[in-house]
Write a protein that binds this DNA or RNA. Structure first.
Length: 423
RNA sequence: GUGGGUGUAGCUCAGUUGGCAGAGCAUCAGGUUGUGGCCCUGAGGGUCGUGGGUUCAAGUCCCAUCACUCACCCCA
């Protein structure tokens, strides 16, 4: 173990796996385009203050998971632990709200949190984010969920179930919070030690606890739904109607609580059982107050994040990788032949044709083996005997048929037979 | 931060009551001098995670340490 290793929780994505990631990203981009989202690309490094103010000072993410450091100029910087804060920052910084009332963004990239790694959880992980600015309409909440469901279906993830909930708003949530705290105080004896702590710091989270004792103790707990104000109630009802009108099967989960402070009203998660303890592969919700909290105008917003690593693992489980294979392999025998082969190969490659050759001095048998392994449909055999006679041989690997091609015609014949694949 | 599991060839793993480090797959080379897949033969590749200890002798027993992994926590 003398060779250097990657940093804990940071992983490499090797060829064979990158194809899967690319296909997922392409599918997502295609769907985003259809739904009217445009790509935004952002720095991975932001001022620490941005995350403290958006995610919430007392969240675990900010308190103990961020990669924060002082740069050489003394600025306190943080590798982004999530994307929404940066998107809002960019949106405000460039005053995009002044150009048009509504913006729909997506972005794909790495996030960083220093947690203990486990299945489906890494210190650098990628997310696909989508955000909609400038609309309070419940229909855009529904549209986001629809995008997620649509993407899951397109990727063949059939057991992905949207869980939805409403967290209320600053008007109605405080009353619920108080009622819940009062309830938990009575039930406190039955709660686990973590929930004892959460009871005061983040009472909503107690509802989310997995410990059976806590689930039992909170059975009669106040329900958020009963405390929603008229506007929130109507908003949530419209989200549900919109989903139903699209035939989206969803589950109302009144215990669905999001970990970030900025969420209000609609929240949702896409869950699956395929990933051990990490059952959420996507999550999101409405964050109407965030733009204002970051010093901008009062602009409503809603969005989601997909855990791309988790999604790739799930999709990878149910899909055989189809490796890209060049249609043509050139086998050259001897120095002269290799020189000629390299010229042809380069000509083909620059013309957009996937092809490869053997560059070292190997036996024809060995070169044929390699061509077979690469999955080439044809092999161009460039041998000294043929060159002397002014021809080369093209072998069809499936039918084993071989035809001679006169040297002057090689490029044209190959360009004709292997049209630019475009890929 | 807390707990459990696992570390032997590139990969998946055997390795008996301590007694010469193995298999399959993969790689490479051959199987009449220039033709792939199947088959056959052979080769390369390991300080047994690392450092101590016990012993005539440690992959095996003991201690420490590191790494990986799963779970808690948190979240996508």
């Amino acid at each position: 173990m003398a060779a250097l290793q990657s940093v804990k929780g940071f992983k490499d994505i090797l060829p064979g796996e990158t194809e899967l990631w690319q296909s997922i990203e392409e599918e997502a981009k295609r769907i985003f385009r259809h739904f009217g989202f445009r790509e935004i690309r952002l720095p991975m490094l932001e001022k620490t203050e941005l995350f403290a103010r958006s995610i919430g000072e007392s969240t675990d993410i900010v308190e103990k998971e961020m990669y924060t450091f002082q740069d050489r100029g003394g600025d306190l910087l943080t590798l982004r632990p999530e994307a929404t804060a940066g998107i809002v920052r960019a949106y405000l910084q460039h005053k995009l709200y002044a150009r048009e009332a509504v913006h729909k963004f997506y972005t794909i990239g790495p996030m960083f949190r220093r947690e203990r790694p486990q299945k489906g959880r890494y210190r650098q992980f990628s997310q696909i984010n989508a955000e909609i600015f400038g609309l309070t309409s419940p229909y855009v909440d529904a549209q986001l969920i629809l995008v997620l469901v649509h993407l899951m279906t397109a990727l063949g993830v059939d057991d992905a179930e949207p869980h939805i909930n409403s967290l209320g708003c600053p008007q109605c949530r405080p009353a619920f919070r108080e009622a819940l705290m009062a309830f938990l105080e009575n039930a406190s004896g039955a709660l686990c030690s973590d929930c004892q702590r959460r009871r005061t710091t983040n009472p909503l989270r107690v509802l989310d606890c997995k410990v059976p004792g806590c689930r039992e103790a909170t059975i009669g707990a106040p329900a958020l739904a009963d405390y929603l104000c008229e506007e929130c109630r109507e908003h949530f009802a419209t989200v549900r109607r919109a989903l139903e009108s699209q035939g989206v099967a969803y589950m109302v989960d009144d215990r669905l609580v999001r970990g970030l402070d900025y969420y209000v009203r609609t929240t949702f998660e896409i869950q699956t059982g395929a990933l051990g303890a990490q059952n959420a592969i996507a999550g999101g919700g409405r964050y109407d107050g965030l733009a204002r909290a970051l010093g901008g105008p009062d602009i409503p917003a809603t969005g989601f994040a997909i855990g791309l690593d988790r999604l790739a693992e799930i999709v990878g489980l149910r899909r055989q990788p189809d490796l890209p294979c060049p249609p043509l392999f050139i086998a050259a025998l001897g120095d002269q032949a290799r020189e000629q082969a390299f010229q042809w190969l380069s000509r083909l490659n620059t013309a957009g044709i996937a092809a490869d050759m053997e560059f070292s001095d190997k036996s024809l048998k060995s070169q044929m083996k390699r061509a077979n392994k690469l999955g080439a449909s044809h092999v161009l055999i460039v041998g000294e005997h043929e060159l002397e006679q002014g021809v080369v041989t093209l072998r069809d690997m499936a039918s084993k048929e071989q035809v001679d091609i006169p040297v002057p015609e090689v490029t044209d014949r190959l360009l004709e037979r292997f049209p630019n694949s475009g890929g």
